[in-house]
Amino acid sequence: MNVMNQWNQKGGSRQHGSRGWLFGLLVGAAFLCIGGIRGELAVIWQKAVMICMECIGIG
């Protein structure tokens, strides 16, 4: 928490604020592509198309 406060006091969040979202967006797109290539979206789909017994409190 102290580290975050120091970061804010130095104006860190202000500096990153204007462009931070763009950086996050690019990181997100890159990670999503990596995940897609590694077949993670298929893992998600396989889980999502079956009734999740844990989610509904049976499994």
Partner: peptide, 27 residues
Amino acid sequence: GALQALLNRRGFQVPFAMLGFFFLFGS
């Protein structure tokens, strides 16, 4: 649910797809 499905895989693999999703929508 998707994040947990990726963490539930055998061993530990970084869940890149969900990290990407959170960065994308969060940003």
